[in-house]
Structures are given as C-alpha cells and as structure tokens.
Amino acid sequence: MRYHTPTTFEDAAQLAAQAKGLTRFLAGGTDVLVQMRAGMVQPDDLIDLKKIAGVAEITATDDGGWRIGVAVPGIALGAHEGLCADWPGVVEGMELVGSTQIQGRATLTGNLCNGSPAADSVPGLVAAGASVEITGPDGTRNVPVEEIPVSPGKTALKAGELISAILLPPRGQNAGDAYLRFIPRTEMDIAVVGSAVSLRLDGDTVTEARVALGAVAPTVKLVPEAAEAIIGTTLDEAALEALAKAASAACSPIDDKRGTVAFRTEVAGVLTKRAALIAKARAKGDTA
C-alpha cells in the first residue's frame, strides 16, 4: 500500500484519478482503518487529506453559513460555539458517532462518504439542507448532501472525485434543529433508527421544516411528507401524530442484527416526534 500526503485537493484528485488499484481517502480514518483491519479493504493507495491547508478549519461563509473542513473531528464541532448555536442538531448527530476517542478523529465527511444508511451525522446534515463541495479532475461542484449516498456503502462520487468541504446554509431567525437516534445501549452503537428535524417558527407555528431519517432505508432519507405534516401547525398532539405516522410510513427498513422492520418503523415515528419538540424548543431559544 502506498501512502500519499497531497497538499491540495487538486493533487489528491489527480492521485486518485491516476491510481490503478483500490484507492481510499484518509481523513479521520475511523472507518477506513477498521475496514483494513478486518481485511474488507486492502487499498493499494491511501491518500491522507490532513496535510491540505484548511481541512481542519470551520469558517463562516459570506452568506452567513458555515464551511467545515473534511478533517474537522467531532470534538472540534462540539467545541465551536457559533456552529453549536446555529446547528445544534448537526453537531449532536456527529457527537453521537462513537466514543470520546472516536470523536478525536471521526469527521462529518468520512461519516457521509462511508455511505452507511445509519450514519449518525447525515440525517442532521440533510435536515439542515447542507451541501458538499466536490473536487474532481474537472474542477469543483456543489451537491446537496442527500444526493451523496446512493446505496449502502456507495456514494455518487465519481472516480477521482472527493469532497473538499461541507457547507451549511445560514441558520436565520426562530429556527432550530435536533437529532435523536435509538441504540440498545447508551453509547457505542450504530443507530437502529435516527431522526433529524430542522424547522422554523413564526410565533408557535412551524413555517418551514425538513425531516430526515436514518437506518430505515438503503440511504439516509429526506421525508417531505413528514415535514408537510407539521408545516402550518403548532406541533399540537394531532400534528405530532401525523408527523409520526408520516415518518413511519416513509420507512422501508430491513430486519438485521440491530433491529426489526416493525421496531424501526414504529420507533422512527416516536423519535421524530421527540426530535421535533426539541427542535421547536431550540427555535424558541432553549439552548439545552
């Protein structure tokens, strides 16, 4: 295996485009190293992105959003006051990935590119309306996060392409987001169900909403029907019931070692209700 440390995304893309065998990009490494260890992946070329300038930085964008470098570990997201104030749901999704130790390495970009339907940080990004900047041999392009995963373990990135930043839109006023996941233990598990809600209020009424679910379909899923169930409501009992129903209806999960179809479908509704209430409280200024 050859180990590369390019200093620009263009060089990284070139290396990947020219590589003949199996290539992996290395940011936090918390998925790649596990796959290498298990013998699932034996890369011929490993391209470490951490020597590229700016990859460990979180910067405010001109439009009032955020640009998050591909090697920013979870621990740095949680320590960033501005980001936590704007997108607590995105941050808490990332912070649920693994242990304190994993948080020292794991990144949003890696979690997204691993392509798992259960990736904890992805529903929050999708609900937030985040996009990614992709650098490839032909330059850069921006793509909504929900378009990146295409099936378990597969992404829409083409050969030689890599994500060069994650972009969060401006949060704006009277808005909040939240992510909840269900795991059998309290920590250290892969989500059995994940649900993220981002919404904006006018008074007590929801004016905008995005709902995304994880681990209930082959990819993390944006669920417009769930958002519609609460837009125009005050999240009263009836709206919450409709929200839960819409979330459950959007599920097409599998039975596996982590959960059953019936359980995932049911709990998707439960979590979405709970996440919506947290998002609402945050929109009203609750910082918890």
């Binding site: 180990y3 290395l26 936090g28 490494g29 918390t30 190293l33 596990v34 260890r37 298990a38 490993l46 470490d48 951490k50 570990p73 621990i75 693994g98 242990s99 304190t100 130790q101 994993i102 020292g104 390495r105 250290m188």
Partner: peptide
C-alpha cells in the same frame, strides 16, 4: 478489539484523546 470499540489502546495525539488502533503509525 482493533476497531476503536474498547479503548484499551487509548493515547493522546497532539493532546487529543484517540484510539491508537485507529491511527496509522505514519500519521
């Protein structure tokens, strides 16, 4: 474990707590 799940290999790297089984030696 070799997969970052048990923490027995915990070290700090530039002051950050990590699993040394999830860091390459070259890094």
């Amino acid at each position: 474990c070799g997969t970052g799940d048990c923490g027995a290999c915990s070290v700090t790297l530039d002051g950050t707590l990590v699993c040394s089984c999830l860091v390459l030696g070259v890094e």
